[in-house]
Amino acid sequence: MKRTGEVVLGVIGIILNALLSLIGGFFAWAATSDTTTEQMANDPTFSANPDDADAILGLMSTFGWAVVAAAILGFIFGIIAVVNISKNKSPKLAGWMFIVGAVLTGVVSVGFGFLPALLYLIAGIMSFVRKEPAEASF
Rank of each mutant, 00 (worst) to 15 (best):
T4D: 12
E6Y: 07
E6V: 11
V8Q: 07
V8D: 04
L9T: 10
L9G: 08
G10Q: 05
I12L: 14
I14V: 14
I15R: 02
I15N: 02
L16V: 07
L16M: 11
L20K: 00
L20S: 12
S21F: 12
L22Q: 10
I23V: 15
G24I: 11
G24N: 08
G24V: 11
F26W: 08
F27M: 15
F27D: 11
A28I: 06
A28C: 06
A28Q: 10
A28P: 06
W29E: 10
A30D: 12
A30W: 05
A31H: 04
T36R: 08
E38W: 00
M40C: 06
M40R: 03
M40Y: 09
N42S: 15
D43M: 06
D43S: 13
F46N: 15
S47I: 14
A48M: 13
N49S: 12
D54V: 01
D54M: 06
D54R: 09
I56F: 15
L57I: 07
G58K: 10
G58S: 13
L59C: 00
M60A: 12
M60Q: 13
F63N: 12
G64A: 08
W65F: 13
W65C: 02
V67P: 07
A69P: 04
A69V: 15
A70S: 13
I72C: 07
G74I: 05
G74L: 04
G74M: 04
G74F: 03
F75H: 02
F77R: 01
F77W: 02
I79S: 03
I80P: 01
A81T: 02
N84T: 02
S86H: 10
K87S: 15
N88W: 09
K89G: 03
S90V: 04
P91L: 10
L93M: 12
W96I: 15
W96H: 04
M97P: 01
M97Q: 08
M97K: 00
F98N: 11
I99G: 05
V100S: 09
V100F: 13
G101E: 05
G101F: 06
A102W: 01
V103H: 05
V103Y: 03
T105L: 04
T105E: 07
V107A: 13
V107F: 11
V108M: 11
S109M: 03
V110T: 14
V110C: 09
V110P: 00
F112V: 15
G113I: 09
F114D: 05
P116R: 02
P116T: 04
L118I: 14
L118Q: 07
L119W: 03
L119F: 14
L119T: 05
Y120R: 05
L121V: 09
L121M: 14
I125F: 11
I125L: 14
M126W: 08
M126G: 07
S127K: 01
S127T: 03
S127D: 03
F128K: 04
V129A: 14
V129G: 01
V129H: 02
R130H: 07
R130W: 00
K131A: 09
P133G: 09
E135D: 08
E135S: 08
E135N: 04
E135A: 12
S137K: 11
S137G: 07
